[in-house]
Design a protein around this nucleic acid. Sequence first.
DNA 1: CGTGGAAACGGAGCGGTGCTCAGCTTATTC
DNA 2: GAATAAGCTGAGCACCGCTCCGTTTCCACG
Lengths: 205, 205
Amino acid sequence: MCHAGGMRADARKNYDHLLEVARGIVAEHGADASLRDIARRAGVGLGTLYRHFPTREALLEALLRSSFGDLTARAEHLGRSVPPGEALLTWVRECTRFTTTYHGVTQVMVAAIEEPDSALHASCVELRAAGARLLSRAQDAGAARPGTDGTDLFALIAGLAWLGDQPALAPRAEHLFDVIAVPALGGHDVVGATVHADHELPTTG
Amino acid sequence: MCHAGGMRADARKNYDHLLEVARGIVAEHGADASLRDIARRAGVGLGTLYRHFPTREALLEALLRSSFGDLTARAEHLGRSVPPGEALLTWVRECTRFTTTYHGVTQVMVAAIEEPDSALHASCVELRAAGARLLSRAQDAGAARPGTDGTDLFALIAGLAWLGDQPALAPRAEHLFDVIAVPALGGHDVVGATVHADHELPTTG
DNA sequence: CGTGGAAACGGAGCGGTGCTCAGCTTATTC
DNA sequence: GAATAAGCTGAGCACCGCTCCGTTTCCACG
């Protein structure tokens, strides 16, 4: 990135501090937190914030970069170590859970994914691709419905994440996952049995 | 309503005109359109707008009231004239389609449904109840999955509506409906066949 | 008809937002 | 130590939601 190498010492210090402060404020107030507030609490002029993060999305990208990397790495790990259907469902669940960290981040993500100029574009595309790999692997194994692609999966995750962001629905997030995501993704028979063996034991035993 | 009877002639005129102008601007700019803009274009002081609609939600409620009434009436009509599973799916589809009229209205609705003081609360609760009736009828007929209630249905509709509100995903709205809503609502085996001819339950061979 | 008074109106004003830019300060380099 | 490029600041602009009070307008009653 442009902020890696040739940066004046004081600038780098401000950059890091700004990011640290932003992390807290965005976690508390959501993705549309006041940028003035962030600059103020960081003890820095507003112009300084804009110098380092020319747009709000650039700031969010810096905040989310590592988490997004973690999620794509997690997808690859699950894809290697867990049965396809379970890997897919687990990953989707983890993605939706993650978004609860920063309110309103889902909206920004879906806006960014088909806006190549967005600072978040690359990360979101990468995330979608990681999901698509898990999905197609699960489809090949008969553990996920055919006829869906990475964008569908991305939309599903975004929708669930958005629901979890609504105060009125957040308590039901887990239940909504079971009601919406599991049937949408589930293979022909493995719907309930794949991930949650503890929910209810059918009369097979 | 308070705006039905004893209203001065000029006030009523302003009220109606404001509503008409608001309808256009909200349709164009979404639920968080500038209230100043609405007042300005209506040729009316900002205070006048606030007099008639003390909060943004009050304005939206006035805008949406008749449509909400139409949707609940539609639910009852479908419930009487169409097989349970088809009635449910058709109604859900119509609900999600409707929200495309005003961008961002979904967010306001889910915020209002558990906020009794909101001007939109009553309408949303009524809508949820109408959906719940369709749902439980479909469940009784075996044309919808058990284990879901009116709030789940409301969340499903809201999620789909929100997805349809995102420019990047709007083109896929129909497909996402098939991928998400149909499996989530569908009966045990009739997933694909639910929409058009499900009332026969062909799996009993 | 007036006309008094209640109802409605208007819009300046307050505190907030995102974002820009001209002028100033400071780190770095020679 | 000076030159210079990089970085910093915050006033300023246009907008937002919302309030509040002086002014205008309607309308019912006399």
